[in-house]
């Protein structure tokens, strides 16, 4: 990689990535319930850390390390939606309700029957 361009690209990438991380944490504070917060964390947060890892890969410019950093990016892209999905499912099946402004809930009709431990119906 040509020195100058690599540095400028890496600098721009980390600034954009950091700003995405900031919006994600801002969303975590402002949004009303756990499910909407998950949107902010799983999208903007993932993109933010991925951009910063890509910046690191660009900057180092050494084949083995760049490959490792890119493997980290792929790994992060694969795991972030899985953990968000699992947490959403867990929160829903443990009975955490959605924000009162929510407009529809198709899932409610299917989980009326109590599942294992009989915990689904408990109010919190």
């Amino acid at each position: 990689m040509i020195d100058g361009i690599g540095d400028y690209l890496a600098g721009a990438l980390i600034v954009v990535g950091a700003l995405f991380a900031l919006t994600a944490s801002f969303g975590l504070l402002r949004l009303p319930d756990v499910y909407t917060r998950m949107h902010a964390a799983s999208k903007a947060g993932t993109l933010g850390s991925c951009l910063m890892l890509i910046a690191l890969a660009v900057h180092i410019g050494e084949f083995a390390t760049t490959l490792r950093a890119l493997a980290g990016v792929v790994f992060f892209l694969l795991t972030a939606p899985i953990s968000a999905h699992l947490l959403a499912k867990a929160a829903y099946s443990a009975g955490y309700r959605m924000w009162r402004g929510s407009v529809s809930d198709d899932l409610a009709e299917t989980v009326t029957a109590p599942k294992k431990n009989g915990l689904v119906g408990t109010e919190r």
Binding site: T23, A40, W99, G101, S102, V103, D105, D106, L107
Partner: peptide, 26 residues
Amino acid sequence: ELVLSAFKVAKLVLSPRMDIKPGIFA
């Protein structure tokens, strides 16, 4: 889509009045 969605979340979060209608659909 990932880049678009991050921008969309950013726009929504930074707007002064959050006008959202969340919900679960099948």
